[in-house]
Design a protein around this nucleic acid. Structure first.
Length: 272
DNA sequence: CTGTGTTGC
DNA sequence: GCAACACAG
């Protein structure tokens, strides 16, 4: 191809796209948000800790590579939050370590033996596959505060497919924030001597932050085998809040929080 | 990738 | 408890 032709064309396209998105996004991305994003973009290490974390529902545990809120009643996290970036998606072939108690949980996290012969997987909330960029990060996901009883075919099936899609979104968008956990209700079935509750559904929220604004997609999926597309289980964040009692994005200005939380925006996430 | 079970020390 | 290996979705 002729570079003399391509370069001007690219410049024109980029310019048009820039002005188009500026106008287009004004509707739900105020100056308020823009200025917050510009502040956050200069504050990479602490941004999730300080700004995007859901409200606490129990003891907040800040690990090096993810943060969680532990529910002692349920012997598992009520939510796990972490940032996934393109650079995290490296390749490694670490041997699976054993699950350990999370020493940072003051009330003691559940013992892995609760899961043994329970019929349920020790399902990662922050997936090991998202922390393979270092042995330390990988090992840190093997804490019992980061697992929840999951149906075998749910975990290896629809939930796994969603996790892989999150990795593909990460490649596309450079970085995303992920918030995930089981829907913890009263009177759930339990396993093991410590009575780890078995969620009937799991939620996952994906947030993308860029100069042009915020973008989210979220799901609630039953803890059982499904051959459906996970898109069938796309819900609003409001719905997840209603089911879990968790307040997501409590620090975002209400005007932005409301728009993010009550809309289901599938098109732009689905397109290739 | 998501995991489990068995064998042997 | 841990290592090695086989196996399943």
């Amino acid at each position: 191809m002729n570079r003399k032709f391509i370069y001007p064309l690219v410049i024109i396209l980029v310019t048009v796209a820039f002005y188009y998105t500026e106008d287009f996004l004004d509707e739900n991305n105020s100056e308020e948000v823009r200025s917050e994003i510009s502040v956050l973009s200069k504050n990479t290490s602490a941004e999730i800790e300080n700004f995007y974390l859901p409200a606490a529902t129990g003891e907040i545990i800040k690990h090096k590579f993810y943060t969680l809120s532990y529910s002692e009643e349920n012997e598992q996290a009520s939510w796990v939050a972490y940032k996934l970036t393109k650079s995290h998606l490296s390749k490694n072939n670490f041997k699976r370590p054993y699950f350990n108690e999370d020493k940072l949980v003051k009330t003691k996290s559940a013992d892995w033996r609760n899961y043994k012969n329970s019929g349920y997987d020790r399902g990662h909330l922050c997936p090991a596959g998202d922390r393979i960029f270092s042995l330390e990060a990988y090992t840190e996901t093997f804490l019992t505060s980061n697992i929840s009883p999951q149906d075998r075919e749910f975990n290896a099936g629809i939930w796994n497919r969603l996790e892989q899609k999150v990795r593909s979104w990460t490649k596309k968008y450079d970085s995303v924030y992920i918030f995930t956990g089981g829907v913890l209700r009263k009177n759930l079935k339990t396993i093991g001597s410590e009575k780890v509750t078995v969620p009937e559904e799991f939620f996952k929220i994906i947030l993308h932050v860029s100069d042009s604004g915020y973008k989210t997609i979220s799901f609630v999926i039953p803890n059982k085998k499904s051959s459906e597309s996970f898109y069938k289980y796309a819900v609003s964040i409001d719905e997840i809040e209603a089911k879990t009692g968790i307040d997501f994005f409590p620090k975002l200005p209400d005007s932005i929080e409301n728009v993010l939380e009550n809309t289901i925006e599938l098109k732009s996430w689905r397109k290739k």
